[in-house]
Design a protein around this nucleic acid. Structure first.
Lengths: 178, 178
DNA sequence: TGGTACATGTAACATGTTACATGATTAG
DNA sequence: CTAATCATGTAACATGTTACATGTACCA
């Protein structure tokens, strides 16, 4: 029985297949590649790396400049990753506090709710814009898997924007003042 | 400074505005009303209820049949809820393990990945079906806020299904066997 | 009258978040 | 030479998950 990986640890191992890398770099990579649907904080990265090293899934190399400590995948780690990636992915979890606010919108001043909706809509629009730029710039040479997850992001943001725009006045309108 | 609520606790207080209710019933209500974008387990409910009672946001009534213990909102609780609902909703969090699997799809046998995709697609299709039925049955008399969150679910599931269907063969196809 | 679903909870653990501490290096 | 950023990490806490324990009421 090998060490049971959680999804965050599994992803880190996945990135280590590309070669040795430091926690800092892994964090940056993760944020770019899977950040849209799998958030990761620095603490988590270092915690998982420490745990995985203790289990022998990775080994730390000599620390380089600025204490950069490159981690390398071991055979045990490779095996653990393979096991993880082959296991049935767990259920999707969406936690969208804005929707809670909407759900209890009766208890909220229309102006306040409208403000929340505005800000969140803007954020989604910006994200969509960013994804589209990535496709425009790098779309051609992306591998089909990365491309598929990016496409998910684009479709998701598009759908969310359409939702914002279809919201009935009672929900989204600021109270008229005159 | 009143007690700082988390979103789960805030939602429970929100439901208590409709009248006293037991933990069990709150759980059922939450699963129906906000379960699509805010998962809740029994443990959480009882833990938050205990904490909120300790803070005086709610009071437990006489336990009825089967130990049902109805909780009632206090004025302090009402105030805490108002404060919570008026606070800027936090960022959205999506955690979709299937997308991690896709992202690392290079390391996975095509058949296995195709199987995962199949099962998840089915689940999304079923969910969409369920939402549509709710609209068909209760759509008319739903309040616009509940309707808006349900609409979010419908648009989300629709977009996800479209994503599944647009996946390129390299990603979604089972290896041809012959 | 025996099984099933109801109803509340506790304990242990896994994961995620926030805040902070520390020192190294680089850019201006 | 000094401020900003890089890079690693720890500590404390909040939240979420899983497994289990306990007893109650209803229904066949």
């Amino acid at each position: 029985m090998t060490y049971r990986l959680n999804a965050t640890a599994g992803s880190l191992l996945g990135f280590l297949h590309r070669g040795p890398s430091s926690g800092w770099d892994l964090l940056a990579t993760a944020r770019v590649q899977i950040g849209q649907f799998w958030s990761i904080t620095p603490s988590q990265v270092y915690r998982e790396l420490a745990a995985m090293q203790a289990e022998g899934l990775i080994v730390a190399g000599e620390s380089g400049p600025r204490d950069r400590r490159p981690y390398t995948l071991t055979d045990t780690g490779r095996q653990a990753f393979t096991e993880w990636i082959r296991s049935e992915p767990g259920p999707e979890v969406i936690r969208y506090p804005l929707l809670l606010t909407v759900a209890f919108g009766v208890h909220l001043e229309p102006d306040v709710l409208a403000g929340f909706l505005d800000r969140h809509r803007t954020e989604h629009a910006e994200r969509l814009e960013r994804y589209r730029e990535v496709v425009a710039v790098a779309g051609g040479e992306m591998d089909p898997y990365a491309r598929a997850t990016l496409d998910f992001g684009i479709r998701y943001e598009t759908a969310v924007l359409a939702w914002f725009d279809a919201l009935p006045r009672e929900v989204s309108a600021r109270a008229p003042r005159d």
